[in-house]
Structures are given as C-alpha cells and as structure tokens.
Design a protein around this nucleic acid. Structure first.
Length: 424
RNA sequence: GGCCCCGUGGUGUAGUUGGUUAACACACCCGCCUGUCACGUGGGAGAUCGCGGGUUCGAGUCCCGUCGGGGCCGCCA
C-alpha cells in the first residue's frame, strides 16, 4: 500500500491508508489506545482497539487504517486502525520526553541529547526554515547568472591574517581550517564574474555568547564588474527578499509553529553612513560607545529603525578603514566601501567593494602595519586583469536566529560547535 | 580573555541557623480503565547529592581546590 503523509490525512477521509513514522506519544486507556504518529509532515492521532503492547515513544512504526473525521480527535480527524507494526522499536526511554521537551528540560540538556531531542517539533522547525532560506539563496542567485563554487577548507593561511584560526596537521605541515572563502571567491570572480558558495567556516574565538559559533554556515557571494558597493547592496536586498519569500512559501507550517512574524522589508533598505549611525546612537539614543559600533549600539539601532520606520533591515555604510579588513575598497577620505547589514539589531552580513588593484592592496596592508610579503600569494592573484568587484557573506544561523527569534544561535544549527561542545 | 551565576534519580525541581530512611512531578516497569489529547488510577524500580580534600560526633547543606556548565561583556557573521 502506498504511504500517506500525516498532512494528507484530511484529504483522504473514508479511505484506507498507510502511515509510517515515529510513535510521538501514547495514551493507553486499556480498552482503547491512542497514539500520536509523527512523520516529516506533521502529527496525526491514531486510535487502536485496546490490548496492544505499545512500544516506547520514538519507535518507528507503520499503521494501516481508515481516515475518519471525528470532533473528539485533535484537529477534527484521526486514523482508526486495528493494529500497528513496529518497524524498529525505541530500545530505551528518551532522555527527555520529546513532546514535552520545551518545558521539561533545560536548553543545554536538549543540546547534549540533540541526536534525539532534534526530533521535537519545535526543535526541528528552525532547521527546516534555514533549509528554505538557503534554497531561496541558491535559487535567486542561479537566476541572476551566478555559479556555485566549492573552495578548499584546508588552507595554508587565513584569509584575513587573523589569529582566530584552527590549526591542523597536514602531513607534518601546519594548515588551517578556512575562516572565510574570501580569496578564493575573488579568484573565481576572475573566472565566472558572479559566484556564490554555501559552506561552513571556522573561527577559533573563545567567546561564549548567544550569537557566536566556532563553526557556522557562511552564505558567500562575490560579483565582478560593479560600479561600487551600491551594486552589491542592491543585489543583497533582492536576495534577502527572495530568501524570505522561499521560506514563507515552503516552510509555512514551521513558521506558524514557531509563531514567526515575517520581517518588515522595505523596497529599499536604508543606507545609513557609519558616522550617522554613531551620531544616532550617541545623540538620539544617548549611548556611549568605543571606536566601532558595539553589540549594544547595534541592538539599539535595530530598535530605532524598527520602532520609527517599521523596518527590520538597515545597511550601515561607509565604514572607516580602521575597522575593516585590508582588502576593503578605500575611498581616499579614510572611509571605505565596506558595509554591514543589520537584521533586527544583529549584524548578519559584512560586505563591500574589494580592492582590485594590487598596488593599492600593498598600500593598505602597509597602512595597517601588515607585512605585504606575507600576502604575496594573495596579491599575485590580482595581477591578471581583476575587474572591480565586491561581495558579502550572510551568517546563515544568525539570519535564522533573528528571523525566528531564537534565544541562542546554537538552536539554528543541528550540532553546534562552541567553546565547550564537540559532541554530538 | 574579564565579571557574575549554577552542578541533587533519565528529565525538571524541593531540600541553606549542619541532624540520622534525600522529597515531589514527569518518564520507565507491573496492574486497572472504551474518547484520551500534560488521560486518570493503584503499586514498583531508579540518586554513593559533579569530583577531591578539609571542618565537625555528624556534611546535599559550611570551607578550600578541581572539573563541568550557563549568562553578560570584548571581538566577530
């Protein structure tokens, strides 16, 4: 018999159907037994006549029965079956009760047992939304003439020369886990003009915050033959719109379950110069701050634009050279064509126009007190007609976190890697 | 890296002027129960109270150390 998904049950009232999934929960009244069967599409109640030895929750099961409407059933319908077949039993009780995990367990406990707690409806939903966002990312960029690339994750040196690299042994030599595909995507602009990559990156930073991961999914974009960073932002605007639309269209049940309010995305996201952002933070919001916009300032800016204009996205543009990487395009006045995208007060993107003239790269390296000789391989790449180009990277988990309103970015990754977590 | 907080059955908690069988709920096991939906109900098993040391007649409780974990900040996406 062909399998029916739980979500298709209402459309098959009166028919005999077969369901396969996990025993979500059981209520055994003796002469009548109820089980909730969960599959990839949802949950439906199955009623059995009494007398069965019901397997433990999370057992994989199959039932055949009649789909019926019933006011007494959750959702108004259920499946009446005579028997159930255990495809593979759960061999021990789950560490936390899956249907009740949200209010029976601490968040940290849920991460420890993630291999099974991920099965909870509210645990699995964010990753489904994220999957849709990434699909939207790919679909939109494919439609705009971009080519998906796959760059090495084992590298000899960091893209940004930072110290936050994980060192690995490479046949006796030192290698590192890539902290960014930056250089490679720039090289590939010289090949395909427009490229993107969906891949993990690693940052060996010993922070412990609700928005950091040591391994995260970077949605990288780079494009050639641009006039300025404005072209990059214009693309990102449409890209973000497409990602949200894909999520709304294909992850509707999950967004409903998580009670997500879709963000306010205006036709054009405001471009706020860095100096103006600092002025707002200082004068209008009365916050003190250091050289860069700190986290508190970004949150405050997010609220400022959300409350005043009802928009959840803001570009901060014209960052000063001092707070951007060396490859950021300078405009000669101490500022750059580097920008950040804030989403609900959190930086989800860093981007901008890059330097395409190797002489200027050397000049900027020296200005930052970095040794150009150490970046010889990087500079070499730009000696063969590199067009004006720029790009950005979106932190997939952060985007997901802010869209859904997750308290911690870890829940936007199936198996988060943080300072203390290398398992599961 | 800085500051603050927390470790008690599988899970969530109670137990602090130190006192003898460490309590409760859920889960699990054995019964009863034909419309449950956090099912109900009777019984049962399950914890050397993170670890080590100290104080004391006596430590889950006080002290020291250690390990593990969490939050915020710095920095980043």
């Amino acid at each position: 018999m062909e399998r029916t998904l739980t979500s298709e049950v209402p459309g098959k009232i009166g028919e005999e159907i077969e369901l396969q999934g996990w025993l979500h929960w059981r209520r055994d009244l003796g002469g009548i037994q109820f089980i909730l069967l969960r599959d990839r599409a949802g949950i439906v109640q199955v009623v059995l006549p009494g007398g069965h030895k019901l397997p433990l929750p999370e057992s994989a099961v199959r039932v055949r029965g009649i789909a019926v409407e019933n006011d007494k059933a959750p959702g108004g319908y259920e499946v009446q079956a005579e028997d159930l077949k255990v495809l593979q039993p759960s061999q021990q009780p789950t560490p936390v009760e899956i249907p009740k995990e949200e209010w029976r367990a601490n968040p940290e406990t849920l991460l420890t047992y993630r291999y099974v707690t991920l099965r909870g409806e509210k645990a699995r939903a964010p990753l489904k939304v994220q999957s849709a966002l990434v699909r939207g990312f790919r679909k939109y960029l494919d439609s705009q003439g971009f080519t998906e690339i796959f760059t090495p994750k084992l590298v000899r040196a960091g893209a940004e020369g930072g110290a936050n690299l994980f060192e690995v042994d490479y046949f006796g030599e030192s290698a590192y886990l890539a902290q960014s595909p930056q250089l490679y995507k720039q090289i590939m602009v010289g090949v395909y003009e427009r490229v993107y990559e969906v891949a993990p990156v690693w940052r060996a930073e010993e922070h412990a915050t609700s928005r950091h991961l040591n391994e995260y999914l970077s949605l990288d974009v780079e494009m050639g033959f641009i006039e300025s960073d404005e072209d990059v932002m214009a693309l990102e605007e449409e890209l973000v719109r497409a990602m949200l639309e894909e999520a709304a269209m294909t992850a509707g049940p999950e967004l409903d379950l998580l009670e997500v309010s879709m963000p306010g995305l205006p036709r054009e996201i405001p471009r706020v110069p860095y100096s103006e952002a600092k002025r707002i933070v200082k004068e209008e919001l009365g916050l003190g701050m250091g050289a860069d916009l700190n986290d508190e300032a970004e949150r405050a800016l997010g609220e400022y634009f959300s409350e005043r204009y009802g928009i959840d996205f803001v570009f901060i543009v014209q960052y000063p050279e001092s707070v951007r990487p060396f490859y950021t395009y300078p405009t000669g006045d101490g500022l750059t064509r580097g920008y950040d995208l804030l989403f609900r007060g959190l930086e989800i993107t860093s981007g901008g126009q890059r330097i395409h003239d190797p002489a200027i790269i050397v000049q900027q390296l020296e200005k930052k007190g970095m040794e150009p000789e150490r970046f010889r391989d990087y500079i070499e790449v730009f000696k063969y007609g590199m067009p004006p180009h720029g790009g950005f990277a979106i932190g997939a988990e952060r985007f997901t976190q802010k869209l859904i309103g997750l308290p911690n970015v870890r829940y936007a990754r199936a198996f988060p890697r943080d300072r203390h977590r290398l398992e599961p």
